[in-house]
Design a protein around this nucleic acid. Structure first.
Lengths: 245, 245
DNA sequence: ATTCATCTATCGAACGTTCGTCCGATATTG
DNA sequence: CAATATCGGACGAACGTTCGATAGATGAAT
């Protein structure tokens, strides 16, 4: 398959996933409005969601370039087109802004991941889908993923603990699938949690080093397949075990 | 081997590496003084290096907890015991401080890594040593590694480019070893740069998620062996290829 | 041995700027 | 006209940075 065709197929796969998973900036911001409505003084939902999307979008863009701490609300006002005072109709403080984005991002990611995995039965298929969904989802919501990773330290202690717990829960999704595969003999016997941690590290590299992968012509779907192959080879039963089973 | 014994051996391996590699906070700060002496107005080398070490140590500690941008020079003064004015005898600006730490860290890491790898001959041994050296070195200089990763965005454009180049050079060390192994048939034929990138992602996880690994009782030497096994299995020639060679 | 002048390293108050936040005024809408 | 959404100037706090003062060490002269 020539590269051009491969790239088009990869783009198709991403488009299909985006539609099926039903995640988008607007959708996430609607969830924020529904849940943190008391922090938003704007009554009209259409207006509120649209402005929230602009605020979140700008926050992610600026914070991912120079860090959330270095982003001033004047930066944010300029980029969103709102005024300083206008911004405060949508959050109570700068700290609350980071907390809201963190919480809603975590929740949605975990939700989508579980929903996708649960569409498959065998451990092999579930692991492949978990990998694929993670890469494609982090491609669609890349700024959001990067923000979750890089700006968790700006959270208060309680919310920070929550963020760590949520991340380990994601890792546990992978570990559980690996244990299933070990139980039915399709994966070799090794520390499932450690294997999950290594897979997760590779998956995170996709969005944390986006520039590098892009420069090398890697696509999201292609990267997912590479990680699936890594998992397959790492977890493949050794020949002797295959015989004894 | 019972865990307690394994942990002691792992600690021994780390101690030996620290001595052989000859890296330490004081040594790195001596290098900073030697190279950026014109930025340091203090003449007495003993005093200068000792204070530089306290400044760098405090900077890494504070910045890794709440981010370099959120660290004020008043925080730094309190932690080092120096005054605001006193700090400025050791660097010209806050921006220069981050740049100096970045540059010196990059240089030393690359140097040690190459020196360690060059002590071995076969591709297998060189890859294992590259992995081992990376994990152990990042264990010794963990705050420094974390700072390099998390605070690269505070650099100016030119120095930022330099940081990216240096990181890709580290990755290229791994890629080159993999290509050597592919040439002599000890590794299977696959994209060497992509394989190196995935290995690097797993290696970075060691210092970026230090708390998690610690909680799970993982040691540096133990983690190195786990990554070596990952590499071995991922790069192992497939049975058919073994036969045809 | 003591004095005094010089140099060195450090200090901390002060400066101008920018920050997050607030609030009375204004524009828009039904 | 009432309700809503947005505006932008103003405020105190905190920021990075500067600089004249100071304490301690050093060394030459008495």
């Amino acid at each position: 398959m020539v590269p051009a065709v491969a790239n088009r197929r990869a783009a198709d796969e991403l488009r299909v996933f985006r539609r099926d998973a039903g995640v988008s900036m607007t959708e996430l911001c609607r969830a924020i409005y529904a849940e943190h409505g008391d922090s938003v003084s704007v009554q009209n939902e259409t207006i509120a969601v649209a402005n929230l999307a602009r605020i979140v979008d700008a926050t992610l863009a600026i914070a991912n370039r120079k860090g959330f701490a270095a982003m001033s609300l004047r930066d944010l006002a300029r980029r969103t087109g709102l005024s300083l005072g206008g911004l405060y109709a949508y959050f109570q403080s700068k700290d609350e802004l980071v907390a809201v984005i963190q919480r809603q991002g975590q929740r949605q990611i975990e939700q989508v991941l579980r929903r996708q995995v649960d569409q498959h039965v065998t451990a092999r298929a579930r692991l492949d889908e978990a990998i694929r969904a993670h890469v494609l989802l982090s491609e669609i919501l890349r700024p959001w993923f990067v923000f979750l990773y890089m700006e968790a330290r700006h959270l208060g202690q309680a919310e920070r603990r929550q963020a760590v717990a949520m991340e380990e829960a994601t890792e546990e999704i992978f570990a559980a699938i690996i244990r299933e595969g070990q139980a039915d003999g399709s994966f070799r016997d090794t520390d499932a949690l450690a294997a999950a941690a290594m897979l997760k590290a590779v998956l995170q590299d996709w969005y944390l080093k986006h520039g590098k992968h892009g420069r090398r012509g890697q696509t999201a779907a292609g990267y997912a397949r590479a990680v699936q192959e890594l998992a397959t080879r790492y977890l493949a039963p050794t020949p002797m075990e295959e015989i004894t089973v």
